[in-house]
């Protein structure tokens, strides 16, 4: 469903992403790992068209989507989350999720303003869908809480909830477990599986190796912008180059 080939991004003199290629089929849980500054987030930004690649292409469901812009990528079914907590400060959880559903509204601008039957239908659908997302994310009790008042763990969750509300086929999760305790991370891993079972293909960038090893079907390792290995968790744990890249870091960090 996703074909990335020769993806390269140069910032000034720095090659943040260097000739990365990989394919992904529907339903696979893929994780991208690598040391800090390896170029993982940049890779996501290139796929989601937040950045334009220096070279290379991104194809999704057979069409070239390289550099078509973030909102167009989202309309085609790829939604990303952010590494830093990113949310609508003054909006309640429910309103933020309703907004995620905006792209599926069929009424025109004027229709929305003057409440045509079409737009009221949109609102009903959005509302039903928001209820489903709240339930799936186990956030019903927070529906009316303003995002700015949520603790870190819930903000990570909100980020995913809002992305899900945009009905992605492919969900790019940038460090979904960053700053979570082990209990929250465990719940997060279950959630990723639940998302996959709902027919959405997740890709993770994550530093928590225990979580990565347990949830991923395939792992892609990036170092200094280049892909150095790709395989199943077991293969990655045995890979010489990966061990070398992580040398100096504690062994347990890659789950050895």
């Amino acid at each position: 469903m996703l074909e990335v080939s020769g993806l390269t991004k140069v910032f000034g003199g720095l090659t943040a992403v260097n000739n990365i290629s990989f394919n992904l089929s529907k339903g696979d849980i893929l994780s991208i790992i690598g040391p800090n500054g390896a170029g993982k987030s940049t890779c996501f930004k290139l796929i989601a068209s937040f950045l334009t690649p220096t070279a290379g292409t991104v194809r999704f469901n057979g069409t070239d989507i390289t550099g078509i812009g973030p909102s167009n990528v989202a309309l085609r079914g790829i939604v990303r989350t952010f590494q830093e907590n990113t949310f609508f400060q003054d909006m309640s959880v429910r309103d933020a999720i309703l907004l995620g559903h905006q792209k599926d509204c069929k009424a025109s601008l004027a229709g929305m303003i003057f409440r045509t039957p079409r737009s009221r239908q949109d609102n009903r659908e959005a509302s039903d869908y928001a209820d489903r997302v709240l339930e799936m994310m186990d956030m019903q009790h927070l529906a009316d809480t303003v995002a700015g008042a949520l603790p870190h763990g819930m903000l990570r969750r909100l980020g995913i909830a809002v992305a899900l509300a945009a009905k992605p086929q492919l969900l790019l999760l940038d460090e979904p477990f960053a700053g979570l305790n082990s209990d929250e991370t465990k719940k997060g891993v279950d959630l990723i599986r639940k998302i996959r079972d709902a027919g959405i293909t997740p890709i993770l960038v994550e530093h928590d190796m225990t979580a990565v090893m347990s949830v991923s079907e395939r792992i892609l390792v990036v170092n200094f912008g280049s892909k150095i290995a790709e395989g199943t968790p077991a293969e990655i744990q045995r890979n010489e180059k990966v061990i070398e890249a992580y040398l100096g870091a504690e062994d347990e960090e890659i789950g050895l």
């Binding site: 989202a74 609508f88 509204c105």
Partner: peptide
């Protein structure tokens, strides 16, 4: 809904564009 979209732009344009 248009008003909600406008408010979302004030609060975070990147997030809004990531949602299509």
């Amino acid at each position: 809904r248009v008003g909600a979209v406008f408010r979302s732009l004030r609060q975070n344009e990147d997030l809004a564009s990531s949602l299509g």
